[in-house]
């Protein structure tokens, strides 16, 4: 594994995370009408379930997308 690249990517993600957290404001429950909208849910849609399965089988990269991470060979 390319350790340098891994370090750079992890650093970049951590910086992005810190930057986004420092820019946060406190949002009260009654102000969350848009945040609580079904389209805003922080996960893949239920209707993407089988799409995520075929990504898992047809591509080498997997995980960190809320999809299936194991079970079943996908070898066909």
């Amino acid at each position: 594994m390319n350790k340098n690249l891994f370090r750079k990517t992890s650093g970049l993600m951590a910086c992005l995370g810190l930057l986004s957290l420092t820019g946060c404001t406190t949002v009260k429950e009654y102000q969350k009408s848009r945040i609580n909208d079904a389209e805003m849910e922080l996960s893949a849609r239920k209707s993407e379930k089988f799409e995520q399965n075929f990504y898992l089988y047809r591509e080498g990269a997997a995980g960190a997308n809320g999809g299936k991470s194991g079970g079943g060979c996908g070898c066909n």
Partner: peptide
């Protein structure tokens, strides 16, 4: 995973999933 409401219109999620 870490999820965060940024403001009234924006939220984000970081996920690291080693396997």
């Amino acid at each position: 995973a870490l999820s965060q409401v940024v403001n009234k219109r924006m939220q984000l999620l970081f996920t690291v999933e080693p396997s």
